[in-house]
Computed example of a mutant assay.
Amino acid sequence: MLLETFTRRKPNEFEGDLSLTQWVSYSLPDAIMDVMDANLVTATGNGLPKELDVVASIMKVALDCCAESPARRTNMKDVVGMLQKIKIQLLAC
Score class of each variant (00 low, 15 high):
Met1Asp: 11
Met1Trp: 11
Met1Gln: 15
Thr5Tyr: 01
Thr7Asn: 00
Glu13Ala: 03
Phe14Asn: 03
Phe14Lys: 09
Phe14Trp: 06
Ser19Glu: 01
Leu20Ala: 03
Thr21Gly: 13
Gln22Arg: 10
Val24Ile: 07
Ser25Ala: 08
Tyr26Asp: 05
Ser27Gly: 10
Leu28Thr: 11
Pro29Glu: 05
Asp30Tyr: 12
Asp30Gln: 04
Ile32Pro: 03
Met33Phe: 11
Asp34Arg: 02
Val35Leu: 07
Met36His: 13
Ala38Met: 07
Asn39Leu: 10
Val41Thr: 13
Ala43Trp: 01
Thr44Glu: 14
Gly47Ala: 12
Leu48Cys: 15
Leu48Phe: 12
Glu51Ala: 12
Glu51Phe: 06
Asp53Glu: 07
Ala56Cys: 15
Ala56Trp: 02
Ser57Trp: 03
Val61Asn: 00
Val61Ala: 01
Ala62His: 02
Leu63Lys: 08
Ala67Cys: 12
Ser69Tyr: 06
Pro70Val: 13
Pro70Ser: 04
Ala71Asn: 07
Ala71His: 03
Arg72Thr: 14
Arg72Gln: 14
Arg73His: 10
Thr74Asp: 06
Thr74Ile: 09
Asn75Tyr: 12
Met76Glu: 11
Met76Ile: 01
Met76His: 08
Asp78Gly: 14
Val79Gln: 02
Gly81Phe: 00
Ile86Gln: 05
Lys87Tyr: 07
Gln89Pro: 07
Leu91Gly: 11
Leu91Ile: 12
Ala92Cys: 09
Ala92Ser: 15
Cys93Leu: 09
